[in-house]
Design a protein around this nucleic acid. Structure first.
Length: 322
DNA sequence: ATGGTTTTTACTGCGTC
DNA sequence: GACGCGGTAAAAACCAT
């Protein structure tokens, strides 16, 4: 096991350190804590008062309210914008009800007119090539996310990533679907609800190879920082797929935790580790599950489960009686 | 392209129900 | 005899250089 391959799944710790190096969280003068002062748009040191950052943008409202009623009165916010629609939900849509502003039905002549307007409005709205591009990609992301049972926030993140890729002109030479799939894959991992490449590929129209290639490219170009998937994040899904009790989940987590402490997990596939942990945990909990059942839900070979779960149990022993 | 890993595939033997 | 499990060797896949 050389360092080169260890890095593959082990960079978790390293990247953490890099992050804290790059991002200043303490005062450069006296190492004191920083506090942000939104009212003055500054970041100041709590210890020595050094102003580290000034003229920040205050994201809050520009008005002040002194009680709830006044707040209602002054607030003029509409529906939140969402990245899940290609125009962030901000463009005009013509309603489909064929009613006027008072709720009365329209005459047939008016109805025809509205229909024509709707048509043209839709054409203009999505005419721009980028917009059409987005529209298609977001539809695709939505479809795949539903198929994989990924929550809304993942779709949001995926949308943001895709949007950025589009803005950075990463699309030429790559398929929309490929980039959309990669964005979703990245988003799922960032949100700690990772799906394996195989699972993603199963619902995508794009080959696994291309997804992996595009994913790497997008991550590199966008400078996304994505930690290797944590094996523990796969555990709940496997446990519930196998109809195992909560105890198994807990024990599996414990096994993985000690394995991590012993450093056994370096360079191994997180999915394999998780699958092995679930299997080992059900042995400990006297739940009978076959290796093949686990390998089925985890899409991992039985051999890998065997190898891993031996290592897990060994690590556990060494930990409890060193 | 290459070399060093890990994972998968395929096969075999053992014990149990 | 089918099934679950363990192990092994060779092939394939993977990743960093």
């Amino acid at each position: 096991m050389t360092d080169t391959t260890i890095r593959r799944y082990t960079s978790e710790r390293e990247t953490r350190e890099e992050q804290s190096d790059g991002e200043e969280v303490v005062c450069p003068e006296c190492e004191g804590n920083l506090a942000s002062d939104a009212e003055h748009g500054e970041t100041v040191c709590e210890e020595c008062g050094l102003v580290v950052e000034e003229d920040e943008i205050d994201p809050g409202p520009e008005w002040r309210a002194f009680d709830a009623a006044e707040k209602d009165e002054k607030s003029r916010v509409g529906a939140p914008t969402t990245n899940m629609m290609h125009d962030k939900g901000l463009s005009t849509n013509i309603g489909w009800q064929d009613k006027d502003a008072y709720g009365n039905s329209l005459s047939s002549r008016q109805r025809e007119k509205m229909q024509r307007l709707r048509t043209w409005n839709e054409r203009f709205r999505t005419r721009d090539s980028k917009e059409r591009n987005l529209k298609q990609a977001l539809g695709e992301i939505d479809r795949m996310a539903s198929a994989l049972g990924l929550p809304e926030n993942v779709r949001e993140t995926a949308s943001v990533i895709y949007r950025r890729a589009l803005d950075e002109d990463l699309l030429p030479g790559r398929s929309i679907e490929g980039v959309a799939t990669s964005a979703l894959y990245a988003a799922a991992r960032q949100a700690d609800t990772p799906r394996s490449l195989d699972e993603i590929a199963a619902v995508s129209r794009v080959e696994k190879d291309e997804i992996a290639r595009t994913y790497r490219y997008v991550v590199r170009e966008l400078g996304l920082e994505i930690q290797p998937a944590d094996p523990e994040s796969y555990v709940p899904r496997f446990v519930s797929d196998l109809d195992l009790p909560e105890e198994v989940e807990r024990r599996a987590r414990d096994l993985l935790a000690t394995a991590k402490r012993q450093g056994v997990h370096s360079g191994k596939s997180p999915v394999g580790l998780a699958a092995a942990a679930v299997y080992a945990a059900s042995l400990l909990a006297n739940e009978k599950v076959t290796q093949s059942a686990v390998s089925e839900v985890a899409n991992i070979s039985e051999v890998t489960i065997r190898n891993r779960y031996h290592e897990l149990l060994e690590a556990e022993e060494e930990f409890s009686a060193p």
